[in-house]
Design a protein around this nucleic acid. Structure first.
Lengths: 117, 117
DNA sequence: TCCAATAGTATCATTTTCCGCACTATATAC
DNA sequence: GTATATAGTGCGGAAAATGATACTATTGGA
């Protein structure tokens, strides 16, 4: 059920927020080649360890996965728990801040599905 | 109102779609430094001409704006109408496919707002 | 006659992002 | 004693994205 132009313009003038939040700032948080994929997995499949993510994400390198996870952690979107074991174990979990993105993922998903028709 | 972990996991197992659509494909369409900004403007503020967009988007160069608009047009997200006038006039409009992203923008907006608290 | 405005294109430079490879530590298993 | 697994770090380079600059066409107006 696609919205038409009228709906879209109402979204600006009505009670609804205008959705004109700063995209560059948002891109800073969830942009980049792997961040959305990582978040998608952690949000919808729960906690994962480093190498589990590595295996789930096709084509990601160790370096990049580390980078992106560090950035997500810095921005409070994932939490990192280290277990003092050998071999080492590190688990990554989506924070509430990340889980609040669930609706956005669903909206994206619906959009994507409607495209495939 | 942030969702908790349980909600997130239910989203996978319940009737809801899992929201595990391919992020790389989506990034192809709406990734890039300027695309989301352009779409945001065209969706929520309606049709704009080239130089209007240029003035609205802080820091964008002519080259990049042309690039991104061409890419969006190729992907059926904006339509381009040329008026045979002098000086030339070219108007860009969000297509229904782009307007269907409205919900996603709203979800992003809500998320962003909830962050600022 | 020359400048202004619009919507570009072409070319090259730069910046940012990303990848490959080698390297580390540790304890357990063989 | 050697190999294995995990979760990394560090370095250098390639590739992709982005930017700067100069150029085009047209015509109305000073």
């Amino acid at each position: 059920m696609a919205l038409d132009r009228k709906d879209a313009e109402n979204a600006v003038r009505g009670d609804e927020p205008s959705a004109l939040c700063p995209m560059p700032d948002i891109a800073q948080l969830i942009g980049g080649k792997w961040k959305l994929i990582v978040l998608q997995i952690l949000i919808f499949q729960g906690t994962k360890r480093f190498n589990e993510l590595r295996r789930l994400i096709d084509g990601v390198t160790q370096t990049m996965l580390t980078n992106q996870l560090r950035a997500l952690e810095r921005d409070g979107l994932v939490s990192r728990k280290i277990y003092a074991e050998v071999p080492p174990r590190v688990e990554y979990t989506a924070t509430p801040r990340a889980i609040a993105l669930t609706k956005m993922f669903h909206a994206m998903h619906e959009w994507w599905e409607s495209e495939q028709s």
